[in-house]
């Protein structure tokens, strides 16, 4: 059995899916980000002044890119895998001799592709509003790859448990969005009172946004080592969880 071909097939199917509906998957993040730049960057940002030694627009760009990556990696896998469950075409893979890790890797890879592609589109849009500088390209690549993998795994687990289309919007609405907005996208957590700084450190998105911002601007509220350790911990935990759920056939086999 050639697992590489099976993996390529799932990846091809996933990328083809979000490219086929590009108006729904790739255009909205670009429009949303334009609005953020106009409102928070041009209008309000000018009154805020500097943050972390950079003008506000430059400060929020990495966070906004990361926000798009997180949202799109998650929602791609959540909606695609749940749709495959709902239409029962997930059975095409379950009856085939595809190892569980290939199914997980295929879907996560698809989520990463969409997350990173949207990240590139948002970066391109950002260039119309601000000059983007790069401090360390490798940190940028590592952070965006690992973060998109983390949230793609999260989306997969959400889809495995989901029993209806409503269930795949609950986590993004009530967990992901608040964590992202409170994850240091629009502000440095050093501005918060000490207690809330401590609370913020329990938010994994803080580490992802700050590591990403370090890659662009060379500034971060957390140490890079801690950031990658936290991201690594979440990837391993979520991957093991997804593998156990699929092996047991939770939500997939009766």
């Amino acid at each position: 059995m050639n697992n590489t071909i099976a993996l390529k097939s799932i990846l091809h199917k996933e990328v083809h899916r979000f490219m086929r509906i590009w108006v729904q998957t790739l255009v909205p993040p670009a429009i949303t980000i334009c609005l953020y730049f106009v409102i928070f960057g041009s209008l309000i940002g000018k009154r805020i002044g500097e943050m972390g030694g950079f003008d506000y627009m430059s400060f929020i760009v990495p966070g906004l890119i990361m926000m798009s990556v997180i949202t799109n990696s998650y929602s791609n896998v959540a909606s695609s895998f749940f749709s495959a469950k709902w239409q029962r075409n997930v059975e095409e893979m379950l009856v085939a001799p595809v190892p569980n890790w290939v199914i997980v890797a295929g879907y996560v890879g698809g989520g990463m592709c969409r997350g990173i592609l949207v990240g590139l589109i948002v970066t391109f849009v950002a260039l119309f509003f601000v000059d983007i500088q790069v401090h360390n390209i490798w940190v940028i690549i590592a952070t965006v790859s690992l973060t998109s993998a983390t949230f793609a795994l999260g989306g997969l687990i959400n889809a495995i448990f989901a029993g209806s289309f409503d269930d795949i919007s609950i986590i993004p609405t009530f967990v992901l969005t608040p964590l992202t907005y409170l994850g240091g996208v629009f502000y440095s957590i050093s501005l918060l009172p000490e207690f809330w700084q401590g609370v913020s450190q329990a938010n994994p998105i803080v580490y992802m946004v700050n590591a990403f911002r370090y890659g662009f601007l060379g500034i971060s509220d957390v140490s890079l080592v801690t950031a990658f350790a936290v991201i690594g911990f979440f990837i391993v935990t979520l991957f093991v969880t997804a593998m156990v759920l699929i092996s047991k056939g939770i939500g997939l086999r009766s």
Binding site: N2, I10, H16, Q87, N89, E92
Partner: peptide, 23 residues
């Protein structure tokens, strides 16, 4: 019926073959 209703026929068949390691 348990295929993706939105996929063209050729894609459905080629993807399925891929799951079995057929190039």
């Amino acid at each position: 019926f348990n295929f993706n209703q939105f996929e063209p026929l050729t894609n459905i068949l080629v993807n399925q073959a891929g799951y079995y390691g057929v190039d």
